[in-house]
Amino acid sequence: MMFNFLNREVRAVISDSSLISSVLIYFIIAISVVNFVLSGMTSTIAVIAGSVFSWIILLLISVNFGYQIYFRDFLDGSIDKILLSGCSLNIFMLIKLFVHWVFIVLPIGVLSALNIKILLNSPLSYSMILSLAVFSTFIIACFISFSTLIAFRAKLGNMLLGIISIPLLMPLLIFISAVSISQQIPYNIEAIFRILGGSCLVLVVVIPFINSLIIKEVGE
């Protein structure tokens, strides 16, 4: 069953050339904007500006394309058949989350991180930056899936999704910041990975479960 869902989602994403090309075009524009803004800035301001720009662009692209991935089944009516088939909705939502993360959020996150590393010559190693991008993009993909479905349930439009996604991420960011400060984590990269890894493990279980509960109510 899991492979059946995975096969379907991957085929749908790969066959959708407009989706892949749109992500690439968005990304090229985003990289150009970030690099243009960073040129001529001092390193401290450039790090902050580059990170903020990249984060906002990543979030907007992920929200926009997450909308397409999660709503396709509602628009074509296949969600009704999947709901009535008696298969595990948790697994279905886990696969959706995985595909959205792997095909949309992760590539953009990794390329954004590498762009900033090359441009700013950050002291963090490539492997460190890539690892941070992998964990943090997964957390972003989890929250986008949740907020997308909540927005659909509340019958909100696509534009509003981006706005409601940001506050939804805030509690997690505040929690991570609070733990980081208490543990003096700016100097302990291993502890940062533990927190991010722990958050990912919790989210990978909790988010598909919550999403499937939302889906069951969406029919109304």
Binding site: R11, D76, G77
Partner: peptide, 12 residues
């Protein structure tokens, strides 16, 4: 349940 929609994935 067969509704108004075709329940087919357009990209496949």
């Amino acid at each position: 349940y067969q509704g108004h929609q075709d329940a087919l994935t357009e990209q496949m």
